[in-house]
């Protein structure tokens, strides 16, 4: 018992970055998320796990208001980043998404060059003063994406020509190039082979230094490997949230236990 307290303190050293209270999401008439309360810490990797259709991706997409792009989706409740309600009328989702980057399930590089892919965000947000500045931002982002060494000689080759794992790391580099504070990752490794997965997981661990990372994953092993905190979703409910070690070794809720022992999935 003492051990866990120690561990918990260790994690909660970092301040709360995202605070969600009483979040509900509806798709048309059906409710996809009910009553979710969660605090997500800065400089921490938080994993969302749960069976398919449990609402973990839906909740993730609430955090940068990607659900706005779906006509039928409706979100109620309160989500705050650094204390500011992101569903406030004054908040422009464009500014929010610059602050909360996102990496998707399938690598989706734009049909442009590697350089232009990474420079896209800084350009639209006006982060660079001149070409040299932009070059610097691109290089730094590619380095953070752990792909610089592989692509530095062919920055002007199309991004779609890279391998799947490289494409996903390019997308991560693209996301960090806008200097976000939070990085959302929606099953970033599900379309990758094991070697590429290992590379991306390693990268995620490094990203923890600078960002609050939220990762949705299907794989419990992955959650255990990369995250410090884990939330288990089931049928639209947040069933259990706590330190990753606790969730996997001493689940409180019988549903969590069933899931991690493979009885529901």
């Amino acid at each position: 018992m003492k051990d866990t307290e120690m561990l918990e303190q260790n994690v909660t050293n970092h301040p709360v970055k995202i605070a969600a209270r009483n979040v509900q999401v509806y798709y048309g008439d059906s409710q996809a998320i009910r009553d979710v309360d969660i605090d997500i810490n800065d400089k921490t990797v938080t994993a969302f796990i749960g069976p398919s259709g449990c609402g973990k991706s839906t909740f993730l997409r609430c955090i940068n208001r990607m659900n706005d792009t779906i006509d039928a989706a409706r979100v109620t409740g309160d989500i705050r980043i650094d204390g500011e309600d992101i569903y406030d009328k004054r908040v422009d989702p464009v500014q929010l998404r610059a602050k909360v980057g996102m990496v998707f399930q399938k690598p989706n590089p734009f049909p442009k060059s590697i350089y232009d892919n990474v420079a896209y965000g800084p350009r639209i947000h006006g982060l660079a003063q001149n070409k040299a500045d932009l070059d610097g931002i691109v290089e730094q982002a590619l380095r953070r994406g752990a792909i610089w060494d592989e692509v530095k000689d062919r920055l002007h080759a199309p991004g779609t020509g890279l391998s799947g794992g490289q494409q996903q790391r390019l997308c991560i580099a693209r996301a960090v190039a806008t200097e976000p504070e939070v990085l959302l990752m929606d099953e970033p490794c599900s379309a990758l082979d094991p070697i590429a997965t290992a590379q991306v997981e390693e990268l995620i661990d490094e990203l923890r230094q600078n960002y609050s990372v939220v990762i949705v994953t299907h794989s419990m092993q992955q959650a255990a490997r990369v995250s410090q905190k884990t939330a288990f979703f089931h049928l639209g409910n947040l069933v259990e949230f706590g330190d990753t070690d606790d969730i996997f070794t001493r689940p409180q809720d019988p549903r969590t236990e069933s899931y991690i022992t493979g009885r529901i999935g």
């Binding site: 406030d88 929010l96 006006g126 200097e179 976000p180």
Partner: peptide, 12 residues
């Protein structure tokens, strides 16, 4: 140059 880090979301 915009500096996104730390800026308030409530101000455009």
């Amino acid at each position: 140059i915009a500096d996104p880090r730390g800026a308030s979301l409530l101000v455009q």
